[in-house]
Nucleic acid binder design. Structure first.
Lengths: 207, 207
DNA sequence: TGTACATCAGTGAACGCGCGTTCACTGATGTAC
DNA sequence: TGTACATCAGTGAACGCGCGTTCACTGATGTAC
């Protein structure tokens, strides 16, 4: 029941440090296991170097710890995509290609994290849904710019939904299961499908 | 520890009946919970009206019970899609529309079952992968017929992969979480996206 | 036709495990006088 | 400057739970003689 003394007790008034450390450990465990059910409060405490009871000083219970950790993960995806999507001066088509790569890259490098983000039971929660909308709104904006540049009068919201659903499906079916053992699964590599998407959806610059 | 006597003991020589009953109960529980981890051997036994130990007469352990149940679920999807895909006389474009509806319908009506089918940890298993390939091969055949009808020289395998990844993404992001509480989620209804897919992928009959 | 017996289809108690959560506590540290 | 004390940041033991799995068993049923 004792704990590896891997962590020094915070100084007085700096107890909130533990909260961040717990969230970081929980996010790592979510990334490793890919699901909220497989990450126990006790495991998070152990990884942080603290006893299970200490967690209750910062979170009401296991559920709250997990929800906060998932929101933490969402902020990471937002940061990754935000770095690519926000510059309003850059060519939107170039921007779109980079976004596809970034999205596919995140899902490939962090499959567990990605899976957790889009778990349906979690997306029902208001706060999680809000984060999802925030990221999606950026995509809608980018699609608007592409359509405008092409004089295309399609609905940007609908087209952005097409983009997102397709990307989501590609990374869901084509991701390798960790090791590069390669040719086991029946599908073409995800990046080829990502590459072919803009043309199929009419999101390439008109000549 | 005792069991509701909801089930009569099989007659001698008919012990295999229990095996089928267990698989059916397990498939139902998978449909309800949407994940292998949430379905315990004990829960399957209880639902079947039998003690946990009885399960071991037919399955080596919890893992084997779950794998066989998932294969059972795959056979159901195969049957649903097979009913639509197999008639080689029918107009392939009409057939394709029906297939999209059937796929979307299965995923919407049985979200738990659908989720389990495409769980990555399970798809790694040879037998599960084999079932997936079997279903996918039918789609490739259908796409071949559409491309041929249109004199389209694209690779049927690649186009079928585009179809499947997109459908998978649509049902993954747009499915309602059970009740028709409606306008919570940010995306357009899945059936609209399914309807728009053939045109976007160039899979409508040429005039 | 009667009876001993092997087999089949299960049961029931028990095990050790990790889990979420509660409770009473401890010891260092900053503050008031 | 010294000391009493409140507070903060945790600890450690214990609880009841459901789980997968093992073990010795039971009772009905078909078969051999």
């Amino acid at each position: 029941m004792s704990v590896t003394p891997s962590r020094e007790r915070s100084r007085r008034g700096e107890g909130d440090q533990l909260r961040d450390d717990l969230l970081e450990a929980a996010a790592d465990l979510l990334a490793e296991h890919g699901s909220v059910e497989k990450v126990s409060l006790r495991a998070v405490a152990t990884r942080t170097g603290v006893s299970p009871t200490a967690v209750y000083r910062h979170f009401a219970n296991h559920d709250e710890l997990m929800i906060e950790s998932v929101l933490w993960c969402w902020r990471e995806l937002d940061a990754v995509l935000g770095a690519v999507l926000t510059d309003p001066e850059e060519d939107p088509f170039e921007c779109f290609r980079k976004m596809g790569d970034a999205y596919h890259g995140f899902a490939t490098e962090e499959p567990g994290r990605y899976k957790v983000l889009f778990t349906r039971d979690l997306m029902v929660l208001d706060q999680v849904q809000e984060m999802g909308l925030l990221v999606f709104a950026k995509l809608v904006g980018l699609v608007e710019r592409m359509l405008a540049a092409n004089g295309d009068d399609r609905d940007a919201f609908f087209v952005a939904s097409q983009v997102h659903t397709w990307l989501h499906g590609i990374v869901g079916l084509c991701n390798k299961p960790g090791s590069p053992e390669a040719e086991a699964d029946p599908f073409p590599p995800g990046d080829e499908l990502v590459l072919a998407m803009p043309a199929a959806l009419g999101l390439e610059p008109k000549n």
